[in-house]
Computed example of a mutant assay.
Amino acid sequence: MKHLRSQGGCPLTVLEKDLIERAGGTPYSGSFLDHYIFGILLPDGTQAFVYATDLVVIFATYAFVVLRLRRRAVRGAGEGAVSVSAEVTQRAVRLREELVAATVAAVVTVAPTAHHG
């Protein structure tokens, strides 16, 4: 498992490459998306569109979740709804910031390698 900790990137891709290597194969280079999706299922040059679409879906999902949590907190808390709603909003904002940071880091890491394929 030392090999798993030494690589960056998605943990599932790292695990897949490790298992391929343990089985005697040669792991592919690049990311999962580069290997299986771009250039095979999708034409080369679509990486930016796919990553932008991913960000839109993530933001839309978070907006939906925040609105549902706020609505549920207001209905269920009565007079204490304001404090519960503020707490839910703060948690959602922190979660969104972490996800955005992770997504941007993934896009910045993978996007430059897509042009070298």
Rank of each mutant, 00 (worst) to 15 (best):
A52N: 07
L69C: 04
R94I: 03
S83L: 15
D44R: 12
I37Q: 07
A52Q: 11
C10R: 00
P112E: 05
D54Y: 07
A48N: 09
H115N: 06
H116W: 11
G78H: 09
L15T: 09
V56P: 05
T113H: 13
V100P: 02
D18L: 07
A73T: 07
M1W: 02
V50I: 13
T26R: 03
A114R: 08
G24Y: 02
L12A: 13
E21F: 07
A23G: 12
I40H: 15
M1A: 08
G78C: 09
K17M: 03
G76E: 15
E21R: 15
V84G: 05
V66Y: 02
I58S: 11
R75G: 12
A73M: 12
V50C: 11
H115E: 12
K17F: 02
S29R: 05
D44K: 10
A81Q: 14
S29V: 06
G76F: 11
Y28E: 08
D44W: 09
T61A: 13
R96Q: 04
S83Y: 12
L12K: 05
F59R: 01
H115P: 06
Q47C: 10
E98I: 07
R22Y: 00
L19S: 02
G39P: 04
I40D: 14
I37T: 11
S31G: 04
G8R: 01
A63C: 13
G25L: 01
F32D: 01
R96E: 00
E16C: 10
F38H: 07
A60Y: 10
L41Y: 08
L95T: 14
V100L: 06
T26K: 03
V110H: 05
G80M: 09
A77W: 02
T13V: 14
P11F: 02
E87T: 15
T26D: 06
Y36N: 13
A73L: 11
V50S: 11
T46R: 08
T89Y: 00
S83N: 07
H3S: 14
V88K: 00
D44L: 11
Q47W: 15
D44Q: 09
V65Q: 03
T53Y: 06
A92V: 04
L95N: 10
R91P: 01
E79H: 12
R22A: 11
A101T: 12
A114C: 07
G30K: 08
Q90F: 13
A81F: 08
K17Y: 03
V107M: 06
Q7S: 05
A81S: 15
D44Y: 13
R70Y: 11
V65A: 15
V65P: 01
L12V: 11
A77L: 06
L67Q: 02
S85R: 04
T103E: 09
S31W: 00
E16G: 03
F38A: 06
